[in-house]
Computed example of a mutant assay.
Amino acid sequence: MLLHKEKKFEEVFRAHFRELHNYAYRFFEDTNIAEEVVQQVFLKFWERDWEKVIHTSAKAYLYRSVYNESLNLLKRNSLKKQYETYQSQHASIETYNDDSDSELRKQLQVALSHLPEKCRTVFEMSRFQELKNQEIASELNLSLKTVEGHMTKALRHLRIYLFDYLTGLVLTLMYGL
Score class of each variant (00 low, 15 high):
residue 92 S to I: 13
residue 23 Y to T: 04
residue 20 L to G: 03
residue 128 F to Q: 00
residue 54 I to D: 02
residue 33 I to R: 10
residue 132 K to G: 02
residue 63 Y to T: 04
residue 59 K to V: 01
residue 70 S to A: 13
residue 117 E to D: 11
residue 98 D to V: 09
residue 163 F to H: 04
residue 157 H to N: 01
residue 149 G to V: 02
residue 20 L to Q: 04
residue 58 A to F: 12
residue 161 Y to P: 00
residue 177 L to W: 12
residue 83 Y to V: 04
residue 60 A to Q: 10
residue 28 F to Q: 02
residue 56 T to C: 12
residue 160 I to W: 15
residue 165 Y to M: 05
residue 172 T to L: 10
residue 126 S to I: 02
residue 142 L to H: 07
residue 165 Y to T: 15
residue 84 E to H: 12
residue 122 V to S: 10
residue 157 H to M: 01
residue 36 E to D: 12
residue 104 L to I: 06
residue 29 E to Y: 07
residue 132 K to R: 12
residue 89 Q to D: 13
residue 136 I to Q: 04
residue 146 T to D: 01
residue 63 Y to F: 15
residue 177 L to A: 14
residue 126 S to L: 06
residue 106 K to S: 05
residue 37 V to W: 14
residue 120 R to M: 05
residue 108 L to K: 10
residue 21 H to L: 09
residue 116 P to D: 14
residue 66 V to K: 01
residue 87 Q to K: 14
residue 99 D to W: 13
residue 66 V to I: 11
residue 122 V to D: 15
residue 144 L to Y: 12
residue 113 S to I: 14
residue 165 Y to K: 06
residue 112 L to R: 05
residue 23 Y to P: 00
residue 132 K to Q: 04
residue 53 V to F: 10
residue 73 L to W: 11
residue 138 S to P: 00
residue 142 L to N: 11
residue 72 N to C: 11
residue 166 L to P: 15
residue 170 V to Y: 15
residue 15 A to H: 10
residue 24 A to S: 03
residue 82 Q to Y: 07
residue 128 F to K: 00
residue 119 C to T: 03
residue 9 F to N: 01
residue 81 K to S: 13
residue 56 T to Q: 13
residue 159 R to S: 08
residue 55 H to C: 06
residue 22 N to I: 01
residue 98 D to A: 12
residue 132 K to W: 02
residue 30 D to M: 03
residue 60 A to S: 14
residue 59 K to R: 12
residue 32 N to A: 04
residue 117 E to Y: 07
residue 106 K to A: 05
residue 125 M to Y: 10
residue 33 I to M: 07
residue 174 M to V: 15
residue 86 Y to S: 07
residue 115 L to N: 02
residue 128 F to E: 12
residue 77 N to W: 09
residue 170 V to R: 15
residue 64 R to Q: 02
residue 27 F to E: 05
residue 69 E to W: 09
residue 170 V to S: 15
residue 154 A to I: 03
residue 111 A to F: 05
residue 115 L to C: 03
residue 7 K to H: 00
residue 81 K to A: 14
residue 40 Q to A: 07
residue 117 E to P: 01
residue 51 E to M: 07
residue 22 N to M: 03
residue 9 F to P: 00
residue 106 K to Y: 08
residue 99 D to C: 09
residue 28 F to K: 06
residue 45 F to Y: 12
residue 60 A to F: 04
residue 43 L to Q: 12
residue 104 L to E: 13
residue 150 H to V: 08
residue 94 E to P: 05
